[in-house]
Amino acid sequence: MSLSIETLDVFYGDAQALDSVSLQVPNGAIVAIVGANGAGKSTLIRSIAGIETPRRGSIRWRDQAITGLPSYKVCNLGIGQVAEGRQIFPSLSVLENLQMGAMLPRARAKEKATLDEVFSLFPRLAERRDQSAGTMSGGEQQMLAIGRCLMGQPELIMFDEPSLGLAPAVVQEVFRIIRLLHERGLTVVLVEQNVAVSLKLADHAYVLENGRIVMQGSGADLLHDDRIRQAYLGL
């Protein structure tokens, strides 16, 4: 098992954001986390990434306890995150943003080779390597955020709302890239507002409601479940 979470509780002050959340992410799988706004999806991602500290429960990565580790240590163990809203460095160039992603000790030795791979995957970034990142379109910035994550040599990538605010054509490209990365062997955790696309991509999926896991199953099974179709797909 790649990532294992057991009975995770996370609070913001007295408000409980996650309540006894348990899930498994097998090596090489795409696992989707779906649910309404405020269900706790981003809190879960942030807890895995070391940004939030759980009050109870455990997070294990490749049989190593990582609960409460600082985010830079989590990243250096091979867990990358493409955050909601992209969070690139707008005043830095495309190249400088990518170089920031390679500052992890695990990534430094292969920085040049990884940069070539990222430019091959995203030719637009190669064309605009010297351009200030803040002057690019939302879609280009999302590609940069993914590329920066890849520079860290992750084995698992967590995508938090990767299609948010993007044009439909760009959204299709983002999902094509996620499928391609999965085909190349990366494990993926996907939090995405487009529930139908998420479930079509996912090997397995979990449904979060009010901080609790209320359903789980294969992506295909949940896609055809009447409760999911009514609650999230409007069918």
Rank of each mutant, 00 (worst) to 15 (best):
G138S: 01
R128T: 02
K112E: 15
L115D: 05
S132V: 11
P105H: 08
E117M: 09
N97L: 06
L115P: 08
F119S: 04
F119H: 07
K110P: 09
A102M: 07
S93F: 07
V94S: 12
S120P: 03
A109N: 14
V94Q: 10
P90Q: 12
L92Q: 14
L95H: 13
L121M: 10
R108S: 09
K110D: 15
M103C: 11
P123D: 01
L98K: 09
Q131N: 02
E117P: 01
E127S: 01
S120K: 09
R106Q: 11
F119Y: 10
S93I: 08
P123F: 01
S120W: 06
K112M: 10
G138Q: 02
E117Y: 08
R108H: 07
T114F: 06
A107V: 05
E111F: 04
A113E: 15
R108Y: 05
D116P: 04
K112P: 05
L104A: 09
L98Q: 12
S132H: 10
K112Y: 11
A126W: 03
L98T: 06
S137D: 00
R129S: 06
A109R: 15
G138K: 01
L92W: 13
E117A: 14
S137L: 01
V94E: 11
T135I: 05
S91P: 09
K110N: 15
A102Y: 13
R128C: 02
R128Y: 00
T114G: 04
A102D: 07
S120C: 10
M136F: 01
S132N: 13
S137T: 06
M103F: 13
E117G: 06
S91C: 13
G134R: 02
A102T: 14
M136P: 01
L125G: 02
A109I: 09
L104D: 08
E111C: 13
F122V: 04
A109S: 14
G101D: 07
L98W: 04
L125W: 01
A107C: 13
S93E: 09
K112W: 10
A133L: 02
E127I: 03
S93W: 10
S91V: 15
G138Y: 00
M136G: 00
V118N: 03
E96I: 08
E96A: 14
R129K: 07
V118Q: 03
R124N: 04
L125H: 00
T135H: 01
S120H: 11
P105M: 10
T135W: 00
P90K: 11
E96F: 10
F119T: 04
T114N: 11
L98C: 13
E117H: 08
S91F: 15
A113K: 14
T135C: 04
N97P: 12
R108M: 07
P105R: 09
K110S: 15
D130P: 01
R106L: 12
T135R: 05
A113R: 13
M100I: 15
P105N: 05
P90Y: 14
R108L: 07
L121E: 09
N97A: 06
K110H: 14
V94L: 07
D116N: 12
K110A: 13
F119M: 04
A109P: 09
